[in-house]
Design a protein around this nucleic acid. Structure first.
Lengths: 215, 215, 215, 215
DNA sequence: TATGAATGAGTATTCATTCAT
DNA sequence: GATGAATGAATACTCATTCAT
C-alpha cells in the first residue's frame, strides 16, 4: 500500500526542490564570478559546475544579468539584516554602527561578497542597475543615519556623515578584494581589528579610553 | 626663405608627437573604462572618441590589455611618488602615512583611478596580472611599513599593520567607485576628512587631542 | 497508436545525425579548400554552402584548423588502408607497391585529395603540424619499405628507396593539382597509366617484358 | 680633380642599383614564402629581413601578389631555358626530355622552387592567375612534345604523353616539398636517381639494357 | 628614396539566448 | 525538467595598401 501523499504536499515539495536548485545556481554563479569575474564567466562554466547544460540554467534564472543581481541581493540580505537590527537596538549610535560593521564584514566575506561589491552598474541593464543602486543607497543611508545619531548622542566625536560612511563602507567592501577563504583571518577577527581602528583611530589616546562601549 | 629645420629637430618633434598621441590613447581608454567598464568598452568606442580608426590604436598600443595596464601604471605613478616621498621624509610614521593618504586620494580621483582599482587579475593575461600584482603589493608593503614605523615611534597607538593597511587602502580605493568629477568634493577635501577619521577615529577624545601633528 | 520509440534508439539516431552533419561540414570544407584554398576560404563561405550560420560550424568542429586536419585525416584513411592491405598481401614487393599506388590515386582524386596534399605545416599549429607530419611520414615509410622488399625479392631492379618513394608519391600527389572531376580520366585509368610508367619506365624493353606480374 | 662622370652613366648606375634592390626584394620574398607560406608571410616580415620598412617594398614591387608572380617567373626561367635547349638539341626525344628533367630539378631546388610550385591560382588575381597558368602550360606542352617525339623516334616505348608529362612534372614539383638545402642530396644527384627511375622503371630488365643513351 | 602614420576590409572566435523535443 | 541544436550579435586583431613628407 502506498502512502497517500497529498498532491498539495507534492506540489510543495516540488516547489522546495526548485528553490533549492535555484539557490544552487545562484551560489555556483557567485563562486564563478568571484573566481573569474563576471565577464570571464560563461554560462557554460556555471552549468559545468552544476553538471547540467546551459539551457537548464534558464529554467531557474531568466538571465545572466539576473544571476548577478540575485547574488547581489543574497549578499545584501545580511547587511540589511544587520542594519535593521541596528535600527531597533537601543544603544549609542556608535555601538549600533559597530554592529553593522560586524554584519557587513561577515557578508562581504561570504561567497556573495564579491558580487555585491563588483556588481557594477556597467554590467547591468538600466533597470537592474537602478534597483541595485537603490539597494546600495539604502545601506549607505542607514550608515549615514547611524553616524548622525552617534554625533547627536555624543558617541561619535565629529565628522562628515557622508564621508565617514564612504570610508567605512569602502574599507569593508575592499575586503572582498583580498579576502581568501583559506588564507585570511575569519571575518569576525577582521571585523574586530577594523572596529578597533574605526573607533580609536591611529593616534594614541592619552586619556586611556579604549574601544569599549560608548558613554 | 625656408625655415632651416634640423633633421634632428624633426625627429625629436615627431617622437614628441607620437608620445602625445599615445598618451591621448591611454587617457581615452581610461575614461572609457571608467564609464563603461573594461569589458563593455570596445576598441571602436575608444577609437571613435579620438576620431581615428581602430587599427590606429594598435599603432600606439599593442593590446587592449596593454591599455588597461598602462592606465594602471599611469595612475600608480602618483601613489608611488607619494610613497617615495614618505620614505625619505623625516617625520613620524603617522605623519608620513598621512602624506601617502593624500597622494593616494589624489591619484584615485584622477582619470586613471578607476583602472587602478579595477584592473583585475581576471581581465589580464597571467604575465600582466603578475606585474600588476607586484606593483600593487609594493604599495601595500609601503603602507604597512609606515604603520610599523608609526607603531615603533609611538605616533600610532596599536593595530595590526596588515589590517590597518587594508582598511586604509580600501577606504581610499573605494573613492573610485563613488567619486564624480563634477559632483564630489575635491580630492584634497576628501583626503582631509579621511585623514581626520583615520587619525582620531569615531570615539570622542576626552583629552582634547586632535588630528594635529603627532608627538 | 504512438510509435514506441526506445529512448536508446532516439539517442542513437541523434548521434548518427550528428555524425552525418559533422561529416557534411568536413566535406564542405574540403571542397571549399580545394576550390579557393585554405586561406581564401572563410568560415562564412563554408557555412553558406551548408545553409547554416557560422557559429553552427563550431558546434561540430572546434576550429578552422581542425577542419583542415579532419580533411587530411579523412583522405589519408584510404591511402593507409591500401598500405595495410599491401602489408598483409602475399605478392612481390613491386606488386604490392602497385596496389598502394592505385589506392593512393583514388584517394588523391577524392574531395579530400587537395587537403591531403596541401595541408601545410605552415597553416597549422605546431601540435597539429606534428600530427600531420607523423601521418605523412608513416605513408612514406610504408612505401619505402615496399620498395626495399621489392629490391630484396627481385621484383624491383635497382634504386634508392627514399628517392623512389619521393618520386612516386610526388607524381601521385601532384594529381591533386590538375585533376578535375568532370574533365579528367577516372582515377583508375590514371593509376593504370602511372603504374605502366612506374614499372616499365620510358625506355623500350627489347626483351618483350611488360607491366605484367613480377616474376 | 673629379672624374667627369657622364650623367648617362649615373642614370645607368642608378638603374642598376634599383634592379639589384628589386632582386633582393624578390629573393627575400621567395625565402619567406618558402618558410612560412604565402599567406603567413606579411610584408612586414619581408621588410624586416631587408632592414627596410614596409612601404619601401612598394617602391620596387607593386603588390604582394606581384612578388609571388616574380618569384614564379624567376624560377621558371631556368626550366624554360632547359626546354629551349632541349628543343634545339639534336638527340632522341627521351634524351632531350632527360635534359629538361635535370634543369627542372635544379630549378625546383632553388630558392624560387617553392613559389613556382605553390603559386596557386587561388592566391592570385584572375589576371595574374591566367599568366601563371599560361607559363605553366607552356612547360607542360614542351614536355608532352618531347614525349611525343620520343615515341616517334622510338626512344620512348609507350605511354600517354599527357599522363607521362603529369607524372614526371609531378615527381619533380614535389621535390619542392621535401627538399632541404642543408639536409638533402644535391639537385644533380636527385635528378640522377629520378632519371634512372623514369627511364628504366621498377621492373628488372632481362636484356641488360640500362639507362644509357637511347638507340 | 624611404618612412611614419593611418586606414578599410576582412576574419576567426565567443557567448548569451532561444526553441523544439 | 532538461537538452541538443542553432543563431545573432559583437569584437579583438591583422594586414595590404596609401600618402604626405
Amino acid at each position: 500500500m502506498t502512502k497517500p501523499t497529498s498532491p498539495w504536499k507534492v506540489a510543495a515539495e516540488r516547489e522546495r526542490q526548485r528553490e533549492l536548485k535555484r539557490d544552487a545556481v545562484i551560489l555556483a554563479a557567485a563562486r564563478a564570478f568571484r573566481e573569474r569575474g563576471y565577464h570571464n564567466t560563461s554560462l557554460d562554466d556555471i552549468a559545468a559546475v552544476l553538471h547540467v547544460t546551459k539551457p537548464t540554467l534558464y529554467y531557474y534564472v531568466s538571465n545572466k544579468e539576473q544571476m548577478l543581481f540575485e547574488c547581489f541581493r543574497e549578499g545584501l540580505g545580511r547587511i540589511a539584516a544587520a542594519c535593521v537590527e541596528a535600527r531597533d537596538a537601543k544603544a549609542s549610535g556608535r555601538d549600533r554602527l559597530v554592529g553593522v560593521v560586524r554584519g557587513y564584514a561577515e557578508a562581504i566575506t561570504s561567497d556573495f561578497g564579491w558580487c555585491m561589491v563588483r556588481a557594477e552598474d556597467q554590467d547591468l541593464s538600466p533597470g537592474m542597475s537602478a534597483r541595485i543602486k537603490a539597494l546600495k543607497s539604502e545601506i549607505d543611508q542607514d550608515i549615514r543615519r547611524l553616524v548622525r545619531e552617534g554625533l547627536a548622542d555624543g558617541s561619535i566625536a565629529t565628522g562628515d556623515p557622508k564621508m565617514l560612511a564612504f570610508a567605512i563602507a569602502g574599507a569593508l567592501n575592499w575586503i572582498a578584494h583580498w579576502y581568501r577563504d583559506d588564507a585570511s583571518l575569519p571575518s569576525s577577527a577582521i571585523a574586530d581589528r577594523f572596529v578597533e581602528f574605526f573607533i580609536n583611530g591611529l593616534a594614541p589616546r592619552t586619556d586611556g579610553a579604549t574601544a569599549g562601549k560608548s558613554p
